[in-house]
């Protein structure tokens, strides 16, 4: 069995770079748009807030795998992008909707008085959001964001339906070739566990580091 692992593990790890890229890019782009949409949701005024709200509701209402397929078959037909980018962008869009909700919730946790105090010393609305509300909301956002990161790590496996060879796809190839699915899938499970565990631990540490002294 040890012999077999020597072959199996490197084979599966060939998909690791893709798994990490998909996760990292989707989370990163999702963070940027999630932040923008979350802020607009709270401060964007009625119309903008409503539009963002509808987008978020639509994304949250659909299975991720369905969105992946829709985006792939729609967008990839219009503009020429690879399966990798199509799938990654789909996951980024999905994550941005969830992250927008995280940002919204985190902003609402910051008391209204903070904004008023900032405005009372002459800060503009944007300055108050940026220098006073966001730094505090950021701290509230880390625990739910850690949860979202764990979800996106595992959602990265969905790109395999589009034929992108990430670790789960590699495991599937391996088991198809060797008829040994159990070991292959267990290895993948171990990798997902380690990735998620390390990410959550890292974010826990960040949360502790930037905790406001009391």
């Amino acid at each position: 069995m040890f012999q077999e692992l020597l072959i199996l593990v490197p084979y599966i790890l060939r998909g690791l770079e893709i798994t990490l890229s998909v996760t990292g890019i989707a989370l990163g782009i999702g963070l940027f748009f999630g932040l923008v949409m979350g802020i607009l949701r709270v401060y964007g005024g009625r119309v903008v807030s409503r539009v963002v709200g509808i987008f978020v509701a639509a994304i949250r209402a659909l299975p991720h795998i369905l969105l992946l397929l829709i985006i792939y078959f729609l967008i990839a037909r219009i503009i020429s992008i690879s399966a990798f980018w199509s799938a990654t962008m789909a996951l980024a869009i999905i994550s941005s909707a969830y992250q927008a909700e995280i940002v919204r919730g985190a902003i609402l946790c910051v008391s209204e008085g903070q904004m008023q105090a900032a405005r009372s010393i002459g800060m503009t609305h944007l300055q108050a959001i940026w220098h006073v509300v966001i730094p505090q909301a950021f701290r509230h956002a880390i625990p739910p964001w850690s949860n979202e990161a764990a979800i996106v790590i595992k959602d990265s496996s969905l790109v395999y339906v589009l034929g992108v060879p990430e670790i789960l796809r590699q495991a599937q190839y391996y088991s198809a070739r060797t008829y040994k699915p159990f070991l292959a899938y267990l290895t993948v499970a171990a990798i997902y566990f380690l990735l998620t565990f390390a990410t959550n631990r890292g974010l826990d540490a960040l949360e502790r580091r930037i905790r406001i002294p009391t």
């Binding site: 008391s111 008085g113 008023q116 105090a117 009372s120 002459g122 006073v132 505090q136």
Partner: peptide
């Protein structure tokens, strides 16, 4: 507003 100071019941210090 820069030159109108305001002090609140609940302090509202930037936490």
């Amino acid at each position: 507003r820069q030159h109108i100071g305001m002090v609140f019941q609940s302090f509202n210090l930037f936490n």
